[in-house]
């Protein structure tokens, strides 16, 4: 049993106290830079947004600036574009996450199998994830361009008409943007699911095979339960990212035509950048923050994330 002996020398006692203080403060010192960064880049903007959401604040009309209470939130409830952008956002998130999950899962299962050229196939599949958002947009803008894109060459072959673009129609622009984002987003699911597949217990597959379970049965009874937490986490992360997606939509469609692809974050960007209505833009941001927070909590609750299915 260890025993501590207290010295009677006051100098020794003082050094001991200093040493304990130094040891005690070390974790806080180590955490300090992170805390400072969090305060500066997370808490301050949040508080700032909260403050401005209660203000009329337009930099080009400073004479009207001032505290207006909840007027921005009242205006939001009567704003048709707010509601329509919310609908577009929900549609965008559900379609994107759903399709990315399905395609990502299928591709992960394929490249998890042993076949010649698997390494190359994996590299090709994962490569779009390494491409930046703006570059992705540029690639797809060219593909959709009526002069040099796919439609032009189809028209050359007698399929379709000249001077058309999938981005230039309210009926097709949304799905054209979905396709571009799918190209970038599917590898995320493929990588995550493939990583989890590597740890799938081989003995379970062997036992199931001995019991006569076919591929589909093994997938539903072993693979999918094993991937459960990965899928929940990946869909949640991707859902949040897709909700906040601005770069691709802003540069690919700008929210058009006629607001057909205007999501809530894109609307916020336009209100703040084009109209310079920072007060109203802040209120919209608060709404987006609250909606996203509630949906996240609800999703985690419904899916019992981190718990076993029978827990």
């Amino acid at each position: 049993m260890a025993m501590s002996v207290k010295s009677s020398d006051p100098l020794v006692n003082r050094h001991g106290l200093l040493a304990r203080m130094r040891r005690g403060s070390t974790p806080y010192l180590l955490l300090a830079p992170t805390m400072v960064l969090l305060l500066v880049f997370l808490l301050y903007p949040l508080l700032s947004i909260g403050y401005f959401s209660l203000q009329q604040y337009n930099v080009s009309q400073p004479w009207d600036n001032g505290f207006i209470g909840l007027d921005n939130f009242r205006a939001m409830l009567a704003d048709d574009l707010f509601w329509s952008s919310l609908v577009v956002t929900a549609k965008w998130v559900v379609v994107q996450v759903g399709l990315q999950l399905v395609f990502g899962l299928v591709l992960a299962l394929i490249v998890n199998e042993a076949f010649r050229g698997r390494g190359l196939a994996r590299a090709v599949l994962f490569s779009p994830w390494a491409v930046s958002g703006v570059l992705t947009t540029t690639i797809w803008l060219l593909l959709y361009n009526p002069a040099v894109g796919v439609n032009r060459y189809l028209a050359d072959l007698g399929l379709g008409e000249y001077g058309t673009s999938l981005l230039a129609s309210g009926d097709t622009a949304f799905w054209a943007a979905v396709l571009a984002e799918l190209w970038r987003g599917v590898p995320f699911f493929t990588i995550l699911i493939l990583a989890d597949l590597q740890s799938a217990p081989g003995e379970l597959y062997e036992a199931a095979q001995v019991d006569g379970a076919g591929r589909i049965r093994r997938f539903w009874s072993i693979t999918l339960p094993h991937l459960r937490n990965s899928i929940i986490l990946a869909t949640l992360l991707r859902g949040v990212w897709e909700f906040n997606n601005v770069d691709l939509l802003y540069t690919l469609t700008g929210g058009g035509p006629a607001n057909a692809t205007t999501t809530l974050p894109l609307y916020v960007a336009r209100v703040a950048i084009d109209s310079k209505e920072f007060g109203y833009g802040s209120a919209l941001t608060i709404a987006a923050f609250v909606i996203l927070g509630l949906v996240t909590v609800l999703y985690l609750k419904l899916t019992n994330f981190g718990r076993e299915p029978n827990e």
């Binding site: 361009n145 002069a147 058309t164 673009s165 230039a168 700008g254």
Partner: peptide, 15 residues
């Protein structure tokens, strides 16, 4: 006009 002109801006017009 081309129907793609629905979203036309300066760069495309000049091209």
């Amino acid at each position: 006009t081309a129907s793609a002109d629905l979203t036309n801006e300066y760069t495309n017009m000049v091209a």
